[in-house]
Write a protein that binds this DNA or RNA. Structure first.
Lengths: 336, 336
DNA sequence: ATGAAAGCGCTAACAG
DNA sequence: CTGTTAGCGCTTTCAT
């Protein structure tokens, strides 16, 4: 036996079992009652011929492929595997094939992938957009394919959104810094209009204002969501006329870069400068000092996305959109 | 305009352009000469109707889906995104849609995914098996779907393999430790029969023997490819009657766990105990002390896998199998 | 350079 | 409970 893959089709099974292809189809799908005797014959034939349904043909005929695309900006960012894990566990349980594609944060790649998913008749898309606005996503994908967007909603009620409720976690972080005696707190965000940085910066400003702390524009910097981005932005903040005593960052990689910048400036962490990240990726617990950060429950986001998508598939395109915000929490380690 | 997704089919385009669907198909695929005037008309109709070919139908008819599955054991392991990145760049350039699926290292999941890929008529599979042997993979997938396996080849010449040449890098690591004065070197591998640990342990034994160093069974331990696995295994080695002065590890996560174990035992790194990892994942440069490790060129492996797969697709199943070994190198940082 | 007809493998719609 | 017919949307013969 060299080859475990036979090329038997449903017609071969039907002939072998002495029934019609339709009956074989229904015996396998359970969509129509089939007598026990017939079902047994069919199961024997399926096993004997090693029949594997052609899922492409099934998809064309039934207009449902049982595939779900998860489109992420940077699979190297450890945040996404967590989301993917949650998505995976929920969807495989329901018989879907979830698969991951990677845009590298390029807007044109986001467009290309979305169009490709539609052309391939995926049953749903879960996406963390880096460059595309929800309206454009909806425009590209159309109404036939359900989309769940990870991130801040745009106010419209025509798309499902799932997000981490950064505000609670960031507020907790700022309060914690305040309790530690910090009165001047900086923030490093991502590039304008890209990713979660804008929203996190707003949450930060609100939290700071709520405590009656002042903010200085010199304490706010932006850069790519990378270690190097954090290094540059951190260095700029630390070079300001009166540097802050603490810095919050829009993600953990930026925070790790900011720690590099602090060390390069000869500052001790957290005694000279406290640093807090966002995301609580695996690395956060491995760096030195261990990173205090906001856990955004990435796996929970993945689970919520998958569940939202399944509900949307069940309810159809006209059902009211769901906007889910999952709580975040401060994880106190050593960097603050 | 609420919906960017039209439901125009090739028949609508043909009617709009005043030609047959056959001609539209050929105008788009370029598989048959079409007059310039006709092609222009068709392009206009395609644009006006916003025609998007149905790729499921195309796949059923042409028996080629232009999809490539990348099956990995643990997408959370930072090694895989690197591989995926290389795979992605090569395959998208050739018009394929590469997608990633995750088995969590469960043998049954590997089987299930492979069968699903065949049923979905993917044009190729790139896989890093954790539990399945090459023969079983070939058996499940059959001859129709090309497979490139990441890892040690099994001696047969019926499957394409791509691997990092661990031996050169591990040999360099052992020599380096020897140069530093180490004469007793331990090794932490993965579970028996799972992943690259077995082969790396063999390479280690050869390198140690080549330098005339003795090995002690107490200095060899095994555990899961995780930080906790490295912590446990490292603690066991350090608790042996005469602990080694250096430990090499089958991957970086194990090495980071071994560093935990060393610290827990009150040992300084690298002065009391030197530690070397394998893979050079991003974290390796972020931990403290920064991890000396063997870079296995994960992105290069991804590129080689994709190129091997494309050649296999072009050459057919009967062409001789390619076994590619990419060089690895020692990256000296602080832990050794 | 183009069209007509057939069919990829399956399931839905329509019968009994 | 089962079968017959039709057709998902496209590409491939085969014919001109």
């Amino acid at each position: 036996m060299i080859d475990g893959h036979s090329i038997a089709g449903i017609i071969d099974v039907a002939a072998d079992a002495g029934v019609s292809p339709t009956t074989v189809s229904h015996a396998l799908s359970g969509k129509r009652a089939v007598s026990a005797k017939t079902r047994l014959k069919i199961q024997e034939s399926v096993a004997r011929l090693n029949y594997q349904p052609n899922l492409v043909a099934r998809g064309l005929r039934s207009q449902r492929t049982h595939t779900i695309a998860l489109l992420v900006a940077d699979i190297s960012n450890p945040y996404y595997p967590e989301v993917a894990s949650g998505v995976h566990d929920v969807l495989t349980r329901d018989g879907y094939l979830p698969f991951v594609c990677n845009t590298n944060g390029v807007a044109e790649a986001e467009r290309t992938f979305l169009a490709e998913f539609v052309a391939r008749s995926v049953d749903g898309i879960i996406m963390h957009p880096m460059a595309l606005a929800p309206a454009e996503i909806r425009f590209i994908v159309g109404r036939r394919v359900p989309v769940v967007i990870i991130g801040e909603d745009d106010g419209s009620h025509s798309v499902d959104f799932v997000r981490s409720d950064d505000r609670t976690g960031i507020s907790a972080g700022v309060s914690y810094l305040h309790d530690q005696g910090h009165r001047s707190i900086g923030f490093i965000s991502g590039p304008v209009g890209i990713g979660p940085g804008d929203a996190r910066l707003i949450s930060f400003r609100l939290a700071v204002a709520a405590l009656g702390l002042r903010t200085d524009d010199e304490w706010i910097a932006r850069g790519p969501y990378t270690r190097d981005g954090g290094l540059d932005a951190g260095a700029r903040i630390l070079a300001s006329s009166t540097p802050p005593t603490a810095i919050m960052c829009a993600n953990d990689l930026i925070a790790i870069g900011a720690m590099d910048a602090a060390r390069a400036a000869g500052l001790a962490i957290p005694s000279d400068i406290a640093i807090i990240g966002c995301d609580n990726i695996g690395i956060a617990d491995l760096v030195s000092p261990r990173l205090t950060t906001i856990d955004n429950n990435a796996r929970g986001v993945g689970i919520a996305c998958a569940e939202t998508l399944l509900l949307r598939i069940a309810d159809g395109p006209d059902a009211v959109a769901r906007h889910t915000a999952l709580p975040t929490r401060l994880v106190i380690r050593q960097s603050a």
